[in-house]
Amino acid sequence: MSNYKVFDNLAVSESGFLFSPSTGESFTLNPIANQILHLLKQGETINQIKEKILSEYDIDESSLEKDLDDFINQLINYKIVEEK
């Protein structure tokens, strides 16, 4: 599984509001999306993030994988993360 790097200059607030200084776009994130993005920012790998979410939330692995895939794809589309 690939790993991803968050573009450095992104400002993400605690409330889940994200502003991309380079593109001028803003986004809102739900709490779990916010958590995942923060983990990505801290340099955690997808596998580490997966384990963390699985231990914390009531969800099975394959459902989480699908959701994570979709979410990461959107982050790439929005130019918020890039593949390392």
Binding site: S15, G16, S26
Partner: peptide, 11 residues
């Protein structure tokens, strides 16, 4: 400022 936009968007 972006902070204002965040306030209204999130809260």
């Amino acid at each position: 400022d972006i902070r204002k936009l965040e306030e209204i968007t999130v809260k």
